[in-house]
């Protein structure tokens, strides 16, 4: 108990330092923006205060259910479909040498096509509704997942695969206990790339031809010269992307716990 008097200062100070490190740069940036926008007032760069005002006004309203949630819903649907498709096809292609030889050049080609150019095409094929926007997201997200899964499955350690064969590991059990965990670091890398692509395509799909969604709203404000409101839409997208990336990191830390810890262990011995 004797140390109790001096102890709390330590953790408290450490927490304060941490907070400063995390928030320091963002606060400085906003401050810089503020000073610039006050010192040199232009129509197109409102002060952070005005953007914040517009933010609460615009987004804490029915827009949450009419624009934000549909956007997020389409993103998650498209992302999940792309994930399933990418991992499913990736496992099949990665496990078969013949399939790989046949499919790889084609896959590389499709990956090289910038997904936004598919928007007009998909609009023609699938119309202007939700299906189109989800398909746009799938068409962009699937490639990094697919190619990374192929790579991960192909690189399953030979000794590990032999061990699995000797102990009768086959079929779904082999997939679950050997192939997918072994490929999981690469699969997660693919999913991470796919997430940022997905957010970009969500917005592009909505900007093209749409009646709802965050991207649609931003374009609408821009055309109506509602500049602070437009900026607030950009902030919403930024926050959304940041939130998704935090959630992804948390999921990754759980799924790849063994991989990350092993990496640290090796680092310590090296």
């Amino acid at each position: 108990m004797s140390a109790a008097g001096t102890r709390p200062a330590g953790p408290l100070r450490r927490a304060a330092l941490r907070l400063l490190r995390v928030l320091g740069l963002p606060v400085l940036l906003v401050l810089g923006w503020w000073i610039y926008s006050v010192a040199e007032p232009t129509f197109y760069l409102p002060t952070p205060g005005r953007v914040a005002g517009a933010f609460t006004e615009v987004w804490f309203s029915a827009r949450i259910t009419e624009d934000v949630l549909p956007s997020v819903g389409r993103l998650l649907t498209g992302y999940a479909l792309a994930g399933l498709l990418g991992v499913g096809l990736g496992v099949a292609i990665g496990s078969s040498r013949a399939l790989r030889a046949a499919a790889e050049p084609v896959l590389e080609f499709f990956r090289a096509v910038p997904p936004p150019v598919l928007v007009p095409l998909i609009t023609l094929l699938a119309g202007l509704d939700t299906t189109m926007k989800v398909l746009v997201i799938v068409s962009g997200c699937v490639w990094p997942v697919l190619l990374n899964t192929v790579e991960g499955v192909r690189a399953v350690d030979e000794v590990l695969a032999d061990t699995g064969r000797c102990f009768g590991l086959r079929g779904p059990a082999r997939l679950r206990h050997l192939v997918l965990p072994a490929a999981s670091p690469q699969i997660m890398a693919g999913l991470r790339q796919a997430l940022s692509i997905g957010i970009i395509l969500m917005v592009i799909g909505e900007m093209f031809a749409s009646t709802s969604g965050i991207g649609h709203t931003v374009v609408l404000f821009q055309r109506g010269f509602a500049i602070p409101e437009m900026w607030s839409g950009i902030v919403v997208l930024g926050l959304l992307g940041f939130g998704f990336s935090l959630a992804f990191r948390a999921a990754e830390r759980r799924i790849l716990a063994w991989h990350l810890a092993r990496g640290e262990e090796r680092g310590r011995h090296a």
Binding site: D157, E158, V159, L160, D162, T163, C166, F167, G168, L169, A173, H177, L178, P181, A182, S184, W258, H259, R262
Partner: peptide
């Protein structure tokens, strides 16, 4: 038939605990 390989580092499943590693073949 059970096999023990030279490369222990590559024949144990790194994503499983020791117990799970020993148990997996028994499950199958």
């Amino acid at each position: 038939m059970a096999v023990v390989f030279q490369e222990y580092g590559r024949s144990l499943f790194p994503w499983m605990t020791v117990r799970k590693n020993v148990e997996l073949p028994l499950r199958e």
